[in-house]
Amino acid sequence: MTKHFVPLECNPEVFDELIHSLGVTTALSFHDVYVIDDPDMLAMIPRPVYALLLVFPVSDTYEEYRHDSDKDLADDYYNSVSGTDKEQAVWFKQTIGNACGTMALLHALANGIPAGMIEPGSTIDILIKESIPLNTVERVKLLENSTELEQQHAKVGIKGDTAAPDAEASVEFHYVCLTRARNSDHLVELDGRRKGPIDLGPLSPDSDLLSEPALNKVREFLARESASSAFSIIALAPSFS
């Protein structure tokens, strides 16, 4: 029987509570990104930005894009890459229903943030360290069997500005993470529903996730999903001092 999590609301306060309970220091927080083409609005977000979480309705257009992009890849191709020195970005396959928000969060924490931002011995510290040498199948088991991850998710899953749906409810929204790969200066798209990480090209060491290379990829998402106005972005960045 497939495990399900209560879907997370795209709310910085909800995500902050989850990352801090897992062991990320309070030096990091999530921030709403209301627009991406207004420098004055973007200047309100602390820098550097380590990851962007995009949430949007799963449209036919997106599904067509996803399938076309992955069609030449074997379903299990990344199993031979994960856990080896060939792996640039730590990627988790999603098998837990309605857990795409948590998967996006895990991708951000396992790849994009400085190691010093995670408390040693914390839940997320142990989870990331245990996952790095594992292949895709083994990582699935690690996440499915993580009681700590499930418990911390459950505590925040019921919070937010709207009533939380049931864990097994059909939800139209999906999360994707954009961040820097753990083992290279490349921008990556990380989505547990894909067949592995999507390499979006080089990202200079002095660029963050609100630099033009990253924002251009967000613009591609927005253009593709232009029929929907229900598109949200939150940024993982330093907390307000």
Rank of each mutant, 00 (worst) to 15 (best):
D16W: 07
D16H: 08
E17Q: 15
E17F: 09
L18G: 01
L18K: 03
I19S: 09
I19H: 15
H20W: 15
H20K: 12
S21D: 13
L22W: 11
V24M: 08
T25I: 08
T26W: 15
L28I: 12
L28Y: 08
L28G: 10
S29K: 06
F30A: 12
F30M: 09
H31S: 08
D32N: 10
V33D: 06
V33E: 00
Y34V: 14
V35R: 10
I36Q: 02
I36V: 11
I36W: 02
I36K: 00
I36D: 12
D37E: 15
D38L: 11
D38A: 12
P39E: 09
M41A: 06
L42N: 02
L42R: 03
A43S: 12
I45M: 07
P46V: 04
P48Y: 03
P48L: 01
V49T: 13
V49M: 07
Y50L: 05
L52V: 10
L53E: 00
L53I: 12
L54I: 09
L54S: 07
L54G: 02
V55K: 13
F56W: 01
P57D: 08
V58R: 14
S59V: 05
S59D: 01
D60F: 11
D60P: 04
D60W: 02
T61L: 03
T61K: 14
Y62T: 00
E63R: 11
E63S: 12
E64F: 02
E64T: 10
Y65E: 12
Y65M: 15
Y65T: 04
Y65Q: 07
Y65I: 04
Y65W: 13
D68F: 03
D68S: 15
S69V: 01
S69R: 15
S69T: 13
S69A: 15
S69W: 10
K71Q: 08
D72M: 06
L73R: 14
L73M: 10
L73I: 03
L73V: 05
L73S: 04
A74D: 14
D75E: 15
Y77G: 06
Y77E: 13
Y78C: 00
Y78Q: 07
N79S: 13
S80G: 04
S80F: 11
V81S: 13
V81P: 02
S82P: 04
G83C: 08
G83T: 11
D85C: 06
D85N: 02
D85G: 02
K86H: 07
E87A: 10
E87F: 08
E87W: 05
Q88D: 14
A89F: 08
F92Y: 15
K93V: 00
K93A: 13
Q94G: 00
Q94M: 02
Q94D: 13
T95G: 01
A99D: 07
C100V: 03
G101N: 15
G101K: 14
T102N: 00
M103A: 05
M103Q: 13
M103Y: 12
A104N: 12
L105I: 02
L105W: 07
L105T: 13
L106G: 11
L106W: 00
H107Q: 03
A108Q: 03
A108K: 00
A110T: 02
A110C: 08
G112W: 14
G112D: 11
G112Y: 05
P114W: 03
P114F: 08
A115P: 01
A115Y: 14
A115N: 06
A115F: 02
G116D: 12
G116C: 05
